[in-house]
Amino acid sequence: MARIRSIKPEFWSSEQVMECSPMARLLFIGLWNFCDDGGNHVASAKTVKAEIFPGDDISSSDVQRMLDELSSNSLIAFYANGDKQYLHVTGWRKHQKIDRPTYKHPPFSDDARRGLDEASPPEGKGEEGRGEEGNGEDLSSLRSDSSAPSALTLGGGTDAQVQVLDPKQRKTARIQQIAQDAQTAYNAIMAKPEGLLPACTVLNKPRVKAVEKALPTVRQLCVRLFGSEKVTPQFWQLYFETAAEDDFHAGRQPGGPGHENWKPDFEYLLRESVIAKLADRALSEAA
């Protein structure tokens, strides 16, 4: 039975929520109406599609992708009870105030959590995931290998962890991770010995700032390519592979008169104008 649920104003500015595509956000809100009073629902894409998008041209596979997107951002968690699969809206108890709750589905617990792939971080991070909406503590990570409820895993999948205490630190850590992903892809594809360009060996403040300045354009491209603003290592791999196919941006074609020895570098390839130009060319050719 569908229920009336509440949406807090903080929902819209939650970093976890903003990482999701608009349709996944709508699906997330719709789930609240059909979850039982424990925040649980059957993990059936067909059922969810029938309940939330009954008159829309959206397939069950589309719904499943959106559910996986919510899971990857720790907004829901999948779990099993017997041979049946369920989903749980993380942070439900703090988000929904229910006077006389009734339960339709088996309760969620970490012991019942279904084995998830690496794209689904553990429950308990962030404004929605940690069960304390509205307190500003959104600890979701851009990477899929986060492993601690109160920490962001940095360093490209190493065990190094940094406690995140406030929004400014969270933002800094997220941008640092995006920059590390860009550095890794650039060095693997564009830099010597694989390519012809100088390696990015030091990820200093100017280089991290260059990544940050490029994010508006990068996020638009991620929506176009993947249906989500989330900036993943896959984007940087695709971008630098595109740059490597271009003679000038790969360093195979010299610059103009007086700049014959000039070659692009990490910062140059992170200019929004360069990213947009290469993306326009690649997408036009693909079309």
Results as ranks from 00 to 15, higher is better:
residue 1 M to P: 01
residue 3 R to E: 10
residue 5 R to P: 08
residue 5 R to V: 12
residue 6 S to W: 11
residue 6 S to C: 07
residue 7 I to S: 09
residue 9 P to A: 06
residue 15 E to Y: 07
residue 15 E to H: 05
residue 16 Q to E: 13
residue 17 V to Y: 00
residue 18 M to S: 09
residue 18 M to I: 04
residue 18 M to C: 05
residue 19 E to T: 01
residue 22 P to V: 06
residue 23 M to W: 00
residue 23 M to Q: 01
residue 29 I to A: 12
residue 30 G to H: 00
residue 34 F to W: 09
residue 36 D to V: 14
residue 36 D to H: 13
residue 39 G to A: 12
residue 39 G to C: 00
residue 42 V to G: 13
residue 47 T to K: 09
residue 53 F to R: 04
residue 54 P to M: 10
residue 55 G to E: 10
residue 58 I to R: 12
residue 58 I to N: 02
residue 58 I to S: 06
residue 61 S to L: 11
residue 62 D to Q: 14
residue 63 V to H: 07
residue 65 R to N: 12
residue 69 E to R: 06
residue 69 E to H: 02
residue 69 E to C: 13
residue 70 L to V: 00
residue 71 S to N: 01
residue 73 N to C: 09
residue 73 N to D: 01
residue 79 Y to A: 00
residue 79 Y to W: 02
residue 81 N to P: 14
residue 82 G to K: 08
residue 84 K to S: 05
residue 85 Q to C: 08
residue 85 Q to I: 01
residue 86 Y to P: 14
residue 86 Y to F: 15
residue 86 Y to T: 03
residue 87 L to Y: 03
residue 87 L to H: 07
residue 89 V to T: 15
residue 92 W to V: 07
residue 94 K to M: 13
residue 97 K to H: 11
residue 98 I to S: 03
residue 101 P to S: 09
residue 107 P to R: 08
residue 107 P to V: 06
residue 112 A to C: 01
residue 116 L to D: 04
residue 116 L to G: 04
residue 116 L to K: 07
residue 117 D to C: 09
residue 123 E to R: 10
residue 125 K to R: 09
residue 126 G to A: 10
residue 129 G to H: 02
residue 129 G to Q: 05
residue 131 G to I: 01
residue 131 G to K: 08
residue 141 S to G: 14
residue 141 S to I: 02
residue 141 S to L: 12
residue 143 R to D: 09
residue 146 S to I: 06
residue 147 S to W: 03
residue 150 S to V: 05
residue 150 S to G: 14
residue 151 A to S: 04
residue 154 L to Y: 06
residue 155 G to K: 01
residue 157 G to V: 05
residue 157 G to F: 03
residue 157 G to T: 08
residue 161 Q to L: 08
residue 161 Q to F: 04
residue 165 L to S: 15
residue 166 D to Y: 08
residue 169 Q to A: 12
residue 170 R to W: 13
residue 172 T to N: 03
residue 174 R to N: 07
residue 175 I to R: 05
residue 175 I to T: 12
residue 175 I to N: 01
residue 176 Q to K: 13
residue 179 A to H: 02
residue 183 Q to P: 01
residue 184 T to I: 11
residue 186 Y to F: 10
residue 190 M to S: 01
residue 191 A to T: 04
residue 193 P to W: 04
residue 196 L to H: 08
residue 198 P to G: 06
residue 198 P to Q: 15
residue 200 C to P: 11
residue 202 V to L: 04
residue 207 R to M: 03
residue 208 V to P: 00
residue 212 E to R: 13
residue 215 L to Y: 02
residue 215 L to V: 05
residue 217 T to V: 06
residue 218 V to Q: 05
residue 221 L to D: 11
residue 222 C to F: 13
residue 223 V to Y: 04
residue 225 L to Q: 11
residue 225 L to G: 02
residue 226 F to N: 11
residue 227 G to W: 00
residue 230 K to H: 13
residue 231 V to P: 07
residue 231 V to D: 12
residue 234 Q to K: 15
residue 236 W to C: 04
residue 238 L to R: 11
residue 239 Y to E: 00
residue 243 A to G: 12
residue 245 E to T: 01
residue 245 E to I: 00
residue 246 D to T: 15
residue 248 F to N: 07
residue 249 H to G: 02
residue 250 A to E: 03
residue 254 P to T: 10
residue 256 G to I: 06
residue 257 P to W: 00
residue 258 G to Q: 08
residue 258 G to F: 05
residue 270 L to P: 08
residue 273 S to C: 09
residue 274 V to I: 02
residue 276 A to G: 00
residue 279 A to N: 06
residue 280 D to R: 15
residue 280 D to N: 13
residue 280 D to Y: 08
residue 283 L to Q: 07
residue 285 E to F: 14
